[in-house]
Lab assay of single mutants.
Amino acid sequence: MAAAAAAGAGPEMVRGQVFDVGPRYTNLSYIGEGAYGMVCSAYDNVNKVRVAIKKISPFEHQTYCQRTLREIKILLRFRHENIIGINDIIRAPTIEQMKDVYIVQDLMETDLYKLLKTQHLSNDHICYFLYQILRGLKYIHSANVLHRDLKPSNLLLNTTCDLKICDFGLARVADPDHDHTGFLTEYVATRWYRAPEIMLNSKGYTKSIDIWSVGCILAEMLSNRPIFPGKHYLDQLNHILGILGSPSQEDLNCIINLKARNYLLSLPHKNKVPWNRLFPNADSKALDLLDKMLTFNPHKRIEVEQALAHPYLEQYYDPSDEPIAEAPFKFDMELDDLPKEKLKELIFEETARFQPGYRS
């Protein structure tokens, strides 16, 4: 834990890192770190609560700039109880001085990944967590956004079992017609939660990839272990087919990539493993919904509104309290091709509203 900075004593240090967030945020305490930044909790002297502050230093890398800009653009436009918001952003007053960006968010005690390492969940908890994931996802999908990296560590939890989806750095506007060349190379989302079509096709992607990830998360809540822990690309596919069985001819016809289709045709026939054999203690309604989410063919996979209306979630289902976005989200430009200098300018502009004396 960093010592509390005395008023006016300059930035606090946390594990050798400068955290320049005073005077409003003090009493910093280390939480963890990701690929390009550290997260601390801090005391907000204005709202009198502890908050989470993520320090991001992305400006050396085009990919990190892209992810940072995506996350900020999306989260500043989203407003939903099951999606983490941005409360404040701290950065230098000029673009030349801006080396880091500090993002202030609600402090959540833990995440689903940490929880599943230590606790076996009751059916009631599984049901409530799944409902909140789908409630947040309904809003995301209504904005025409794909999260693309749903996994237990991106689901934040607090002691009252509130759940918030975080990390929109890989999110995209849904565009089933656009052929994202190089899709697989830039697709760094965790393999275990990846839909089979991501490994088999490169053309376009749809909201059904997020539903697949939610199915993987439900299976993990039922058993405290990942359902498809593939060691590499082909191993991942083999794990999936080992449980779902061989795809039907109709399902194979959806695979545009001939090499991928021929690979699947070359494999020995596998039978589907019954879900109640894998999860003998699970609620039968939970397994019915799991089956509809972990469907090989993305066109037959359940959609988020149908999933919310499934009998497993009937005690929570309330369409009048499951809000959607006001308007579909649009990125003005494809960020993939922009140089990091341009992305830095866009991050600077996007964060201006939090600067003292800002006038829109």
Rank of each mutant, 00 (worst) to 15 (best):
D321R: 03
R191T: 06
A307S: 14
P152E: 09
W212T: 01
I211H: 11
K342E: 00
F78D: 02
Q97G: 07
E81L: 06
Y43F: 14
F183H: 01
T206E: 09
I72M: 13
Y312K: 02
F331I: 15
K55Q: 14
S153Q: 04
P356I: 08
I255V: 01
E349W: 00
S246K: 02
V104L: 10
L107Y: 06
K259Q: 12
N45F: 11
E341D: 14
I243N: 12
T206F: 12
T295R: 08
E220Q: 08
Q66K: 15
T160P: 10
L294M: 12
I95W: 10
C161Q: 12
K164C: 07
F129W: 03
R148A: 03
D291N: 12
Y113K: 10
N224A: 05
L267G: 01
K342T: 11
S223P: 11
G32N: 04
P339K: 13
L28C: 02
L156E: 09
D283G: 02
E250Y: 07
L130T: 06
R79W: 07
L130S: 11
H80R: 00
E305I: 05
E303N: 04
C166L: 06
I84A: 01
G16W: 00
K330E: 06
L252H: 13
E96L: 11
G169Q: 05
S248Y: 14
L252I: 09
Y64P: 15
P58E: 13
S213L: 09
I95Y: 05
P356C: 03
Q62T: 10
D179K: 03
V273D: 02
D162A: 08
V145A: 00
Y263I: 07
H310Y: 08
T190E: 02
C40I: 13
L130W: 03
E250D: 13
R225L: 14
S142C: 04
Y187E: 04
V39C: 13
V304F: 13
T94Y: 06
P196G: 08
I209N: 13
D321A: 14
I347A: 09
K164Q: 02
N47V: 13
N201L: 06
A352M: 13
Y36P: 05
D336V: 15
R24A: 00
I256F: 14
P196L: 07
L258K: 05
H299I: 11
V104T: 03
I347T: 11
H141I: 07
H299T: 11
R353V: 12
P274A: 07
V273P: 00
S57Y: 14
F228K: 01
Q306W: 04
I140V: 09
H310V: 03
P176Y: 08
E220F: 14
D251S: 09
L157R: 07
P247K: 11
L252P: 12
I324D: 09
W192V: 07
L75H: 15
I209G: 08
Q236G: 02
P93Y: 03
C254T: 04
L244N: 01
H269E: 10
I217T: 03
F168R: 07
H310T: 02
S223F: 07
M13L: 15
I165S: 00
R70N: 01
D321F: 05
M98R: 08
I84V: 00
N201Y: 14
T118V: 03
H61T: 13
Q315T: 03
T206L: 06
T68H: 15
Y205D: 12
I240W: 02
P268V: 09
F19I: 15
K340N: 13
D318K: 00
I86Y: 09
V14P: 14
D235M: 03
H141K: 10
N257E: 09
G8S: 07
H80V: 08
I89N: 13
L346Q: 14
L170W: 08
L146H: 06
N257W: 05
F168S: 00
D318V: 13
L237W: 01
D235Y: 14
F78L: 14
L163D: 01
K340T: 05
A2Q: 00
K285L: 10
I302E: 03
E345I: 03
S266D: 08
V46A: 08
K114F: 05
T159V: 11
S320L: 08
R91T: 02
M108P: 03
E314C: 04
L76C: 07
K48W: 02
K114P: 08
L28N: 05
I256Q: 12
I243S: 12
L76G: 11
H239Y: 11
G136A: 02
G85C: 15
N123Y: 15
G8L: 09
E71L: 06
N158K: 15
V21E: 15
E303V: 13
T160C: 10
